[in-house]
Amino acid sequence: MSLLRVSNLSMSFGGVKAVDDVSFDVNPGELLALIGPNGAGKSTCFNIVNGQLRPTRGSVTLDGHELVGMRPRDIWRRGVGRTFQVAATFNSMTVLENVQMALVSHEKRLYGLWKRAASHFEEEAIALLDQVGMATHAQRACSVLAYGDVKRVEMAVALANRPKLLLMDEPTAGMAPQERNDLMALTKRLAIERNIGVLFTEHSMDVVFASADRMIVLARGKLIAQGDADTIRNDANVQAVYFGTGKTFRPHATLSRDIPKGSHE
């Protein structure tokens, strides 16, 4: 049984179909890349799965439980973690405190003062930081970290709710090549060790081809191709959508220069 099942998903804004009858699955331990040019519907799909948008039609199930209609916080508690294109951490807090806050929230505990809350879940937070290689930085403020390290802290925060599914929105945006490789290698390792399904969007094709187990390609709201690297690389529809010429793109090519970052879908 698939972990995440998206069935016949459609979303319209006025007369515009942002997502048009899209279906796909994500399996435990798998990295599935959701790619496509600007306006393809990637962000809309992501936000529907996360509960930020309610689809016009269709179903999204996690372990057989319907997510459509649930609030984002309830979807998070059910086991859907998320990282963002711009890392979402509290810069004024330490690395450790950021993870502790996520753990406190997941356990539904409320505290009047952060000084009291800071004494809770310290061991659990350190264990999560150790998994992402940041335990030695636990007492540093997030504001002084290199961006690649901030993304690792965000990963530890995303793991605080013991996710079954992790949504990653352009995880390597703004990162140097080695940082990209390291983060995606970490993601793959955690997905396998924790049996987490990962759905991610990414503009850099070298990252996609190096990291994804499978890919699905959207264009103008429709799913036009899905499969492994060779299937996608040789698909005529994908070639035409990305290049308009039928050229075959290579595994280590990057589309980051062809697709402006920070665009809205």
Rank of each mutant, 00 (worst) to 15 (best):
M70S: 09
R82Q: 04
K261T: 10
K42D: 01
S204H: 14
A146D: 12
L159V: 03
K222Q: 15
W114E: 12
V241I: 13
E30L: 04
D258W: 04
Q131H: 12
E265Y: 04
V26C: 01
P72C: 07
L145D: 00
S2P: 14
G227Q: 06
G133D: 08
L53C: 06
L186S: 13
D206E: 08
I192G: 08
I216G: 00
E265T: 09
P177Q: 07
G244T: 11
R73F: 14
V104F: 04
V86Y: 10
F200G: 01
N27D: 11
D63S: 14
Y242Q: 01
G112S: 10
A125W: 00
R78H: 10
A40N: 01
H137I: 05
N237I: 07
V6E: 03
K222F: 07
A88R: 15
E122N: 06
T89E: 08
V207H: 00
N38L: 02
G14I: 08
M101G: 06
R54E: 15
K188Y: 04
T94V: 05
H106W: 15
A118E: 04
L3N: 00
S105C: 08
V132C: 01
A176I: 04
R140A: 14
S204W: 12
G197V: 00
F243N: 01
W114A: 11
H252A: 12
A236R: 14
F243T: 11
G51H: 08
A240I: 12
I35T: 02
G81A: 09
Q52P: 04
D21E: 10
E154S: 06
T245G: 02
E123D: 09
L165D: 02
I259R: 11
S7T: 12
A210H: 13
S263G: 07
Q85M: 06
V60A: 03
Q52C: 10
M175Y: 01
G29N: 03
G36A: 05
V132S: 02
L223T: 08
L110P: 07
M1Y: 04
